[in-house]
């Protein structure tokens, strides 16, 4: 287990991911568009020490994909996705398919807009599939 506070660990992980995300920003922007403007979700990560970090991820009103760690609590969100940090890390490192994590009850989704939880989950899966296809397409080209 890391000795760093969870918030630092998450920020470091995002910093490591940033160049990869920036390299694919055009493709990702297209698939983020699928989610609709102004929409967002809160990602809640926790660890075994009982620490919790909240991250807002979604699209701004002008259609730009955005991630906000500092002001997550003040941003409007349609849903909240809660998971252990190790589950999240495994997903972003490509070691765990988020759909499998959801099927195996490792991810908890809370709806904040009155729609069923599964409604949000199914759209997340669809979005994830598009991201995966874009990344695979990019790999095939390079």
């Amino acid at each position: 287990m890391s000795l760093l506070p969870l918030a630092w660990e998450v920020k470091l992980l995002f910093l490591r991911l940033a160049p990869k995300i920036m390299a694919r920003r055009r493709e990702l922007a297209r698939v983020v568009e699928e989610m609709g403007r102004g929409k967002g979700g809160i990602l809640v990560l926790y660890n075994d020490k009982g620490e919790e970090v909240r991250i807002w991820a979604g699209m701004s009103e002008d259609g730009k994909p955005e991630v906000d760690i500092e002001n997550a609590g003040r941003r409007r969100a349609n849903n909240e996705i809660v998971m252990h940090y190790s589950t999240f890390k495994a997903i972003v490192e490509g070691k765990l398919d988020p759909r499998v994590a959801y099927a195996h009850d490792l991810i908890y989704v809370r709806s904040l807009d009155g729609l069923p939880v599964s409604f949000h989950a199914l759209l997340w899966f669809s979005w994830f599939d598009l991201v995966k296809e874009e990344i695979e397409g990019l790999r095939a080209k390079s």
């Binding site: 398919d97 759909r99 499998v100 099927a103 195996h104 009850d105 069923p116 939880v117 899966f125 669809s126």
Partner: peptide, 19 residues
Amino acid sequence: MFFPRGVGLAWSHEKVADM
């Protein structure tokens, strides 16, 4: 359509009913 082939659902009744 949403889960990879061969993956079982470890869901409570609440989650199934929601789906």
